[in-house]
Design a protein around this nucleic acid. Sequence first.
DNA 1: CGAATAGTGTCTATAAGACACTATATA
DNA 2: TATATAGTGTCTTATAGACACTATTCG
Lengths: 223, 223
Amino acid sequence: MGGPESPRPIATVDVVLLTLGPAGLEVLLAKREREPFRDRLALPGGFVHTDADADTGQTALRVLRDKTGLAPPYLEQLYTFSGAVRDPRGWSLSVVYFALLPEQVVRPAVVRDGCTLCAVERLPDLPFDHGRIIAAALTRLRNKAAYSSLPAFLLPETFTMDDLRQVYERVLGTRLDRSSFRRKIEEQGFFRPVEGERRTGAHRPAQLYRLAEARLAEFDRTI
Amino acid sequence: MGGPESPRPIATVDVVLLTLGPAGLEVLLAKREREPFRDRLALPGGFVHTDADADTGQTALRVLRDKTGLAPPYLEQLYTFSGAVRDPRGWSLSVVYFALLPEQVVRPAVVRDGCTLCAVERLPDLPFDHGRIIAAALTRLRNKAAYSSLPAFLLPETFTMDDLRQVYERVLGTRLDRSSFRRKIEEQGFFRPVEGERRTGAHRPAQLYRLAEARLAEFDRTI
DNA sequence: CGAATAGTGTCTATAAGACACTATATA
DNA sequence: TATATAGTGTCTTATAGACACTATTCG
C-alpha cells in the first residue's frame, strides 16, 4: 500500500472572520483554550476531525459555530499555510478560510466567552503566523472588492445605495463618486431593489437593495 | 499538550503543470508508481515529507523535480482539496500547486519514464478528484490571464509582440486586436524590449521582448 | 517590386470621473 | 420653506475596438 516514511503533518483549519465596525475592518480573535499559547488571543481554529468533518470547509464551519455560534453566508478558502516552524508542536499545515459578516451579526456573538473583535490596524502580537494570515486575508478582500460584490457581505441583508458605496470606499480606502458608482452597480445588476425605503431624517428616503444572488458575483473585466 | 482525538489526515501535494502546445493547453500527467491506482495516469504528486520539505511549496518543487527534472519559474498555490472520500486510503488533504512552463522546456522532459502531456480538452478518466483539480487550474489560468502577465510564462524567455498576443488569445479563447493589444501591453510596462529581433521570412523582423520582472504582474483595475 | 508580417496613426464608440441639477422627505 | 440626503442628467476625459496606413525584410 505504501505510506509516507515521515510522520504526517498536523492538520488544522483557521478562520479569518472580518467585519466592518466604526473603527474600520475588524477581525474576530478567540482566547486559546489549550497549549501552545494558551489564553493568548489568536484566530479561531482547530484540528481537522477526520471522523466528523466531511472536508476542511466543514471544519471551518464547525470551528466558527463552536466558538461563536455564527454561520457566515460568505466563506471562501483563502490559502494553506504550512511548514516546519510555524507551530511549536511540529510540522503543520493550516487550511485558512476567510469569512465576512455584518457587524450587527458579529457584535452580539462576541459577548460570549473569550471572543473579541480587534481593529486590523491595531492587532496585538499574535501566535503562530496569524499576523501574516490576517494580512493575506486583507489583501484578498481589498483586491476582490475592486471587481466583485464581496463588500456587500459586510452589510446587513438590505442596504441603501449610499451604504453600499461607503462600504466599498472603506474597504478600498478610496473615494467613489456617487453617480458613477450607482451607474456601474446598476449595469452590473447583482444588487436588486427590494420593496421598502429607509427614512432617516428631514430628507428624501432611500431605496433599499439586496444582493440578487447569495453568492459572490464578479464584474466584467477586459484585457 | 492536547492533540486531535481523530487520526491526522493524509497530507499530499499535487501539481498541475500546464503548457501550451499546438493542440492547445496541455497538462503533465505521470504514471502512478504505487497503489492506489498504480500504473494509471494522474497528476504528479506525493506525500508531504515532514523531515525534508520546509513547506508544501518545497514539496511541490521536489515532486516535480523527481518526476520530470523541471523547475518551473511560475508556481503558485491553487487550492487545497480535502475530504473523507477523495482518496481510497482515507481522509485526505491535497495542497495543489499550479505551474506554467513553455512547451519547448516541457516536451524534452516528458520523454522520461511515464510522463506524458495531455490536451486538457481530451483528458482520460483520472483517479482521485484530479479531473476537478485540473478544471480549477484552467479556471484560474483563464481568469488571471485577463488581467496579468500570466500567459507570458507559457512562452520562452524572449518572444515577439505577436507571440504574446497569440498566447493571450489562445488562453482566453478570444481574438485580440493587434494595435489595441500592443498599446495596452506597452502602457502596463511589464514586458521590456531586449536587444535582438526575430527574422522569419520575407518581411520586417520582429522586436523581441521579455518579462520585465520574474514574478507575476497584474494590470490596473478599477471599480 | 511583390508579398508578408511588424509596427503606427487615427477615428469612433464606450465607459469613467466630475459635478450640477432635480426629487422628496421632515422640522 | 429650509435643509438634508436621494437620485438623475450631462459634459468632459480616458480607454478600447476597428481598421487603415506605413515600415521593413526577402524572394
